[in-house]
Design a protein around this nucleic acid. Structure first.
Lengths: 205, 205, 205, 205
DNA sequence: TATGAATGAGCTTTCATTCAT
DNA sequence: CATGAATGAAAGCTCATTCAT
């Protein structure tokens, strides 16, 4: 990876990043075409290779960049004092909302990566692959589960929220709805769940 | 598509179908390789084209076949008399469970198709693309939403269940867990939701 | 390298071999184009790669094949009973003459290889690169150096003959003179050296 | 070629010349990269093309420059009064030795050129390619062939010495031996030939 | 019915060359 | 004069598709 990439104008950097994220996210690594990436970014074939060396290099860079960006956004958006499970989820969703409006395909790109089994890629990406799940785990551990109704399997509940969140995001990608709409939708889901799974005493905190 | 395909031994038909479903599901249409399909199916390159004419022909056949199969299984597994939302979901899950044990990648194949934007393919597949959502909608309309607690947005609830179901399935594909385990997991999720969203009076019906 | 190459008809094998030898010999490895090779051989692009895997693979195969062929011809043409240094050189020259009529560009190909700087190629070819010099060395060891005038460093003499032979070949390639002319020229050089370096007693044997 | 090149400081001229000679000599024309040359010379990409127009132009200039420089050295090192064939050869070898200390890669560059097959280059270089051989020929014509034994084809003998000299150089390039070792080896060959081809009367002059 | 050798358009990658600064 | 980001044509290689057997 050529460090001079960062000397380019931010607009051009992001045009290249967004193009790569989109093409990788839609097609996966193996079948993504560099032609599609450069066409989407509006640059020449040679320039992609000038900065990233190879298709694999471009993928690795995008993964590292996305991992760092998402980590930063999560740390920025999620309050360290928040205890409520659903409020934490909301704040994480806000972080992703910012992500989506800056890099529309970044989330899908990170998700698509999970199904990848190309050894040379997975090895290069290994140091970053656990960063986001780890920080998300740390956030969820801060939740005060004593507010959840007795008898509810909190693990099952958290995973339900995860599936809903993820499903919403994929739906957003297919329908092309804006990040503000996604955030509003997510909050509606969280509120519905919160209204049923939170003990009466805490509902109006 | 060469109709003589159905004269082959059922075992060979299914070997070819499963191979194609797997490769299409994992890579998507554009980037799936016919070499991978024939290798997975243990047949020669020529035979695939003898029966399906082209890669696009194979894809179209797989989609039509999957759509028909899923429709049949849903009609078989879901009781016409059932009114409870979560029981209906359970029965639909049973149908998918049967699907998964016969054609492990059929569900993922159908889901992967949603992100496809190849015009020549989407047009060929158009007549079948709404069949499964339509029959699922019909099933959900049979549900008696009067059992759901007042104030709950039933549409939101149904979509939540949809996201959970779908997320579970994708998780199953990644971890490789069996269809029986998936079914058991799904039921656990449904029961948790049922326990919180159903009116007290109906809980033990 | 795909061993099924040897199942092809001999005529097709040789067509491919001669085409590759010609293009590699004329242009050198780097500038030789696979397009030129397949055009010359009258085959498709894909087939070259089907059998040889890569341009480097084709080159390596050609080198190994040429090395083996030349070794065989040397063993056939040079008499095991011959003792005279200059007669041995003549017989080796006859062997090369036969080579030229079967694979016109094989000698030039082998010579062109000497100027090659590509590490990945020279490494792959390493096991064969000494085969021909080795058998030539063995032949020269059979020479009866007692016929050479006293006080002459025979090693220096043999190397002189090697340089002359090689220089002649390169000259032949540049000027494009036929294999019969080269043979005649070489004999002239050998005779001149023989006349000065052989003891008087043996000169007319 | 832009004549303003010669207005540059001698130090910068030589830095560019030595960089180009080195990269061309090590990699050959085809595989030499302009990127390597400008990096080695510590100049920008554009400047190389500003002065030499193209990669081929740079090569042609280097060849012409080297040819002139070698001619000058030969004229300086070889005595106009020397008559002995083998002494002349020795003095020419000394000239080449001096070359090495001014432009370390010049000899290797000139030799590497011999293996070049690129038509567009060989044509551009054609006017200079015979300059050095020509002056060498002129030097050899000064030799007093009356000292050579009667009956010997002197033309054949000179060409033999040429092949030996050239073969030795190529050997030196492959094995990487120093210029002093090459000179010593060459003298050994010359002495062996002198001892056999010179008339008895002149042997100890 | 079944095979796999053969094809050629299209993909990834390289690198000499240009041009705005 | 000097820079180096940007270009795109060309090369090596892949893969859907065909066809003789």
């Amino acid at each position: 990876m050529n460090e001079k990439f960062f000397d380019l104008k931010k607009e051009k950097q992001d045009r290249m990043i967004n193009a790569a994220l989109k093409v990788f996210a839609i097609n996966g690594y193996q079948k993504a075409s560099t032609d599609d990436i450069v066409k989407e970014a509006g640059i020449s074939k040679g320039l992609l290779f000038h900065y990233f060396g190879s298709k694999a290099g471009a993928y690795t860079f995008m993964y590292e960049y996305s991992s760092r960006f998402m980590t930063m956004e999560l740390e920025r958006a999620v309050s360290l004092r928040e205890k409520d499970l659903f409020r934490l989820l909301e704040q994480m969703e806000e972080a992703k909302s910012v992500l989506l409006s800056n890099y529309p395909y970044m989330q899908k790109f990170l998700l698509t990566h999970m199904g990848l089994n190309d050894k040379s890629i997975t090895e290069a990406v290994a140091p970053y692959v656990d960063k986001v799940p780890q920080i998300m785990g740390e956030i969820m551990e801060r939740a005060d589960y004593s507010r959840i109704k007795d008898g509810v399997d909190t693990d099952l509940l958290v995973r339900t929220m995860y599936y809903v969140t993820r499903g919403l995001m994929e739906m957003a990608l297919v329908t092309g709805m804006g990040s503000d709409v996604v955030l509003k939708e997510a909050v509606a889901y969280y509120e519905m769940m919160r209204s049923q799974f939170t003990k009466e005493d805490y509902l109006f905190c």
